[in-house]
Every structure is written in C-alpha cells, then in structure tokens.
C-alpha cells in the first residue's frame, strides 16, 4: 500500500474542504471496497478522509412521507432499522456477507456505483433523492456509467431520502462465491406509478419502462407474464452470459413483484 495521510473531520463542511484542498485524496466510509482496492495497488490516494463518524451522515429518520437514511448507515443498520420502508431492509439483509454488512455503508455503495452494487436498485426503484453537501440529485440521473456517478470529485453524499411506496420488493440471483448479485431487480408500486430497477445486468443500473407499463394495469406477477428483455447491451462475463442475464431479469422482476409488501 502506498503511504497516505488520514483525516477524520468532525463535520461535513470540514470533510469537503479537506477533499477539495487535496485533489488526490479520497473519502473513506466503510472501506469495504476502497481498502481492498488499496491493498491490491489499484488506487494511490494522497490522503483518506474518513467520513464514517460524521454525525450528519448517521442514523435513519422519518421525514413526513420519506425515510431519510444517513450515508454512513451500514447495511446491517439498514437491515435492522429500515423495516418501515418495504424492500429496503430486505435488500440490505442480502448484501455480501455478515462482516461486509457490519462495515459497508449506503453512501459508499452508491458513490462507488459498482454495476452490481445493490443499493442502487432501491434508490432507483423507489425514485429516491441523493442529498449531498451542495445539492439534491434524483436517483434517475445519478448513475452515469460503470463506477461513475453525477457527483463532483469533492462532493459528499450526506443522506438518501426514499419516498414511501405502497409496496416494494427485491429479488436477486446471488453469485455463490462472492455474494454479489449476478442480477438484482427492485420493483415498487409508488405514488407516481410502478417502478422497476435492475442492477448487475448492464453497465449501470437501469429501469424497465415496458415492465412498469404492464404493472400499471395491476401490480402483480401475472401482469409480467410473457414479458421478455433483449440481451443487447447487457453484461457478458465469465459468470453469466448476456442471454442468461436477460432471462434472469424477467424471472427476478416477477419474484420482486411477488415479494412486494
């Protein structure tokens, strides 16, 4: 590991200033992605700015029709305490493994935007807002490409505001070795109509407009019978072909709708 400096700022403003002053630095949250990358020599930041203990990034609270989850909330905390928002706790409960869930955070997962990162499914599937130190970004325009987001380099994710759906569910096909999803689908019946979001299958998370239209007629797995997805543009890898991923999307969409509570 290349040596780096370590800062643990107490506030959002201090964290962003440190990051801005040192362009080669990086934010550190749970470290469950970043530290492995450092050990493997895949990144050489001049400094790490640890945001995991900043009070504004902690906790889960109710804000009228929305559940607001701090960016530093761990997957384990969300699995335990976000039960009032259908689908989200169920999704957090199946991320990676026990140890990863105890350290890994919501904000780190969204900012990293691994194409198989699971929190993107709920953020996009519920139409959440990503609140940063300087603005609010809708999930629909947040995920711009593999490992790329609409965040500025020195922009800090502070919290995610999820509108409460009527019901929502999540289904994944787990890679048995890594725990990551081969494909994951989040389906929600929201105040603005049905939303279906897919992760693991494309270069970035995406929605399925044809499935959403079908669900508008009646939110149940039967509404999706016979609907298929084209393999065009889907990920093709050692773990799963594009055709298999296309097949999984349709199967998991029905399972996510059936699991919706």
């Amino acid at each position: 590991m290349t040596p780096f400096a370590y800062h643990r700022p107490a506030t959002v403003a201090e964290a962003v200033l440190l990051r801005w002053r040192e362009p080669a630095s990086a934010f550190l949250a749970g470290g469950q992605t970043l530290i492995g990358t450092l050990t493997a020599g895949g990144a050489h930041p001049s400094a790490l700015i640890d945001v995991a203990r900043i009070p504004d990034l902690a906790g889960i609270r109710d804000e009228g029709g929305r559940l607001v989850v701090g960016a530093a909330a761990t997957h384990a905390t969300i699995a335990r305490d976000a039960g009032s928002l259908p689908g989200l706790a169920a999704l957090a409960r199946v991320i990676g493994d026990l140890q990863i869930r105890n350290m890994g955070t919501l904000g780190g997962s969204l900012a990293n935007n691994d194409p198989a990162g699971e929190h993107a499914a709920a953020a996009l599937g519920l139409g959440a807002d990503i609140r940063t130190d300087r603005r609010t970004l809708p999930a629909d325009s947040f995920f711009t490409g593999p490992f790329r987001t609409a965040l500025d380099p020195d922009e800090l994710v502070v919290a995610i505001a999820y509108p409460r759906p009527r019901r929502a569910g999540y289904a994944k096909m787990r890679d048995p070795a890594s725990g990551y999803p081969v494909v994951g689908v989040f389906a929600a019946e929201t105040a603005d109509g049905p939303r279906v979001a897919v992760i693991g299958a494309g270069p970035r998370p995406f929605r399925l407009p044809a499935f959403e239209r079908a669900l508008a007629a009646g939110f149940g797995p039967d509404a999706l019978a016979g609907l298929t997805v084209s393999a065009q543009g889907l990920r093709d890898s050692l773990h799963a072909s594009a055709q298999y991923r296309a097949h999984l999307i349709a199967v998991l969409a029905r399972r996510a709708v059936a699991a919706a509570k």
């Binding site: 492995g36 790490l48 384990a76 140890q99």
Partner: peptide
C-alpha cells in the same frame, strides 16, 4: 486471502464481526 474473501481475519469491532484485512488500524481508534 488479504482481500476480504475468506473471513479468516474476522474480529469484533464494537461487538460486531468485521474482516480485519478490510479495516485500517486508524479506523479502530
């Protein structure tokens, strides 16, 4: 494995199991 895969390095941080090869010593301060 030194890469977060095997769990041989599992310890408890504030009472919860984590992989010590994916945590910096300074994070345990």
């Amino acid at each position: 494995c030194d890469s977060g895969q095997c769990g041989a390095c599992t310890i408890h941080l504030d009472g919860r199991a984590v992989k010590a090869c994916l945590v910096l010593a300074v994070q345990a301060d």
